[in-house]
């Protein structure tokens, strides 16, 4: 990780250039190191993997930064609001009612599209309702989100106990994916979804910067607060659906890259923070994969290590916040 960039001498643009270079190095290393046999096979094979990891990392990074902006809190992640719990519940319900076999043979893209639509629909409904109730208190919203997260997890847990062992095996297979088992049939759809939200976020950039000032100041400056926050919540729902569908839930990874991005960029501008967070995510996932797989010869332990580091950072931030 490029700690040296924290020195005040580097402008955000220079930091971005360094990060982009590091990301390029990571990707190249991942593609060529230890390649045996024909390039015609190795490059497309690894390329798909890089592509998938980059998409997922970017989606998690952007979702986390956006979530932290609208909650004005840098230790929250969409995972805390029960977004991925909702996604798991949606999957469990499908297997519960359809059965494992028809689930497994269902058209993957169609299913993914349905799940995403369902996720966006449900979370929008939930947050609309909450926003009208809790009107102005985002902390109440987050708290309710946590409670709903527990509810979703418990409901999914209950159904998982009720289904037959064969269905459960199918379920386990789709629930505990890792960065090594990215579902390639979903990559194209996911890419389209992520690029779409990218354009959407691009158009919201100026308003997002203003949201940094808090709800009252944002309204004072003429941002249609309720509309912008609803849009951001929908974007987060899409990004979390996509990343969870591709690799499964990750809790602390977003926290890690978003806070590193704030630290390195030292600016409030989302036009700088978001690219930095995406690049950091790519460096952490692909660079980390290279080091683990090719240098140390481990398999698939990256997600665990990242979660461990992220968890430690989370605790450190809590303690630091306590001291202030």
């Amino acid at each position: 990780m490029p700690e040296r960039s924290t020195s005040p001498g580097l402008s955000p643009r220079q930091v971005l250039i360094i990060l982009a270079a590091l990301a390029a190095v990571s990707i190249t290393a991942f593609m060529v190191i230890g390649a045996k046999g024909s390039w015609g096979f190795v490059l497309p094979f690894r390329g798909t993997k890089v592509w998938g990891i980059a998409m997922v990392g970017g989606a998690i990074a952007v979702a986390t930064v956006l979530f932290q902006t609208i909650t004005a809190n840098r230790i929250l992640t969409p995972g805390i609001m029960g977004y991925d719990a909702l996604f798991r519940l949606v999957r469990t319900v499908q297997i519960f009612f359809l059965g494992g076999l028809s689930y497994a043979t269902f058209n993957a893209q169609l299913q993914f599209a349905l799940e995403t639509v369902l996720m966006v629909g449900l979370s929008t409904l939930l947050f609309r309702w909450l926003f009208n109730r809790a009107a102005r208190d985002l902390y109440l919203l987050v708290l309710v989100g946590i409670v709903f997260g527990v509810l979703f997890r418990s409901l999914a847990g209950l159904m998982q106990r009720l289904i037959n062992p064969n269905d459960y095996a199918v379920l386990q297979d789709v629930m505990f994916a890792g960065f090594n088992t990215i579902d390639k049939s979903l990559l194209m759809v996911s890419t389209l979804a992520i690029l779409g939200t990218g354009v959407w976020v691009w158009r919201l950039l100026p308003a997002l910067d203003v949201l940094n000032l808090g709800r009252d100041n944002a309204i004072n400056l003429g941002v249609a607060y309720r509309s912008v926050v609803s849009q951001v919540l929908i974007i987060i729902a899409i990004l979390v659906s996509v990343s969870t569908a591709l690799v499964g839930p990750v809790t602390f990874f977003g926290l890690l890259v978003s806070n590193l991005a704030y630290m390195l960029i030292r600016s409030h501008k989302h036009a700088l923070i978001l690219p930095a967070a995406v690049l950091l995510a790519i460096i952490a996932l692909i660079g980390g994969q290279v080091i683990l797989e090719r240098v140390f010869g481990f398999d698939s332990a990256l997600a665990i290590i990242i979660e461990l580091v992220g968890g430690v950072v989370f605790i450190a931030m809590l303690l630091k916040g306590n001291r202030k």
Binding site: N73, N212, G222, Y262
Partner: peptide
């Protein structure tokens, strides 16, 4: 519309907690 009002009326409340790093000029 909020942005029409924002060109006519401004409000500053008491507590302005900001977690982002922003310079005075920004």
């Amino acid at each position: 519309p909020s942005d029409v009002l924002a060109r006519r009326l401004s409000i500053l409340r008491q507590d302005n907690h900001i977690s982002a790093r922003i310079t005075v000029r920004d």
